[in-house]
Design a protein around this nucleic acid. Structure first.
Lengths: 224, 224
DNA sequence: GTCTATATTAAGATAGAC
DNA sequence: GTCTATCTTAATATAGAC
């Protein structure tokens, strides 16, 4: 079955010419930067137009409103954002699985800081446009992964931790380096160049200490 | 020496009638809520006026501009924000000092969430009005306290950690519960009522695990 | 599809009566 | 000190030519 009118084709996937695609992407890229820095209310179409290299009315040819641009960005974001969490494998080695998760999330902070800030802005403002998704898709996925962590704790393969607060910790610690970068850089001064490397080392140490089970208790099966 | 004209009296301390004081405080209180939720650009004088129970022109009788209100809030905030960090005592028991610090910071997230979000909004936007203070007062204080932590690590009284990234971790983990409350509540669902208690337990466990030095290495002096 | 010109609304700030 | 009325600017969005 090829793509057809059977399933309602989402707006973001409607076929377009190469020029249309290119302009759409240029607009969304510019909008991402502006929304991330200035928030929804602080962002202006003038700025987005300038950064995209298009005129303001031309922006509104591609998106019917500022709101629509913001919506298009957010709609794609959560999926991307949750990829590392989805990748947690119940069959993997528990501590390694979580350390990998942390490393991936930190990598996203480093490589996608605008996305992180867009998300942070939205949540800070009470998640007016994400409420449903947070309580639905996100809560469901977290519930599923929390059960895995709970199982690992019960089996003594990691220390007993509150699974959901463990995830909060991963989010808080990794996203901090994107969202609060201005503060991180100001505090570190000349050390700031090394911040991503030092952050990774620090977070590996932190989660290893938190999760490594106390020796001699429960351990069943051992390594491998 | 009582207060006199010797030191330039800051605007926020100029003597006022009780009514003036009360209105000023009502305005700042309302402004704090609105700036925290909507960011600087998203905040409107109409909203602030409504929440303060005053007319818009009356707001501008007390503060010459929206910018001035924001400035007044930020000016007081950093001092308050850094109090728990200042309280870290080099003569205290290392792990206990840091756990106390974490507990105080978490308490501030719980009791002063608007302040936390105001601060987060500002940093998220690149700290345009705090750059100087972050690189000055904040960086200086962190440097001082980092030296203490470094000393504790060197003496084997806590595990060897990167002191500044340790502070970042405290900030990220505690402020997350204020700034991302919408997400925390959505993910926890019915558990959300217990979030502050569970967060405290989780963070105590996390920092205890991170900081407690490996037994048998270095330990000099022991308990007491 | 892209532009110039413009309608419309909202928000910061001021004037001036009381 | 506080209000109503208003000025002014800036920003979203649209009309209509090309």
């Amino acid at each position: 079955m090829t793509d057809a009118a059977t399933t309602p084709t989402p707006d973001s996937l409607r076929p377009r010419t190469r020029i249309q695609q290119k302009n759409r992407e240029a607009i969304l890229d510019a909008a991402l930067g502006v929304f991330a820095r200035d928030g929804f209310a602080g962002a202006t179409l003038d700025r987005i137009a300038a950064e995209a290299g298009l005129s303001k009315p031309n922006l509104l040819y591609y998106f019917r409103s500022k709101e629509a641009m913001h919506h298009a960005l957010l709609a794609d974001l959560l999926d991307l954002w949750l990829d590392p969490l989805r990748a947690i494998d119940p069959a993997g080695e528990p501590v390694a699985e979580i350390l990998t998760y942390v490393r991936r999330k930190l990598g996203m902070s480093r490589n996608l800081p605008r996305e992180s800030r867009l998300f942070a802005n939205e949540i800070l403002q009470g998640a007016p446009r994400l409420q449903g998704v947070l309580g639905g898709e996100l809560a469901g996925l977290v519930e599923e992964k929390a059960a895995i962590v709970r199982g690992w704790s019960a089996a003594g393969r990691i220390a007993p931790v509150h699974p959901k607060h463990l995830f909060f910790s991963v989010w808080a610690l990794t996203q901090h380096y994107a969202d609060f970068d201005a503060q991180v850089v100001a505090v570190l001064g000349p050390e700031a160049d090394r911040r991503w490397l030092d952050a990774e080392r620090h977070l590996m140490q932190l989660f290893t200490a938190l999760l490594t089970p106390a020796p001699g208790l429960f351990k069943q099966g051992g390594a491998g």
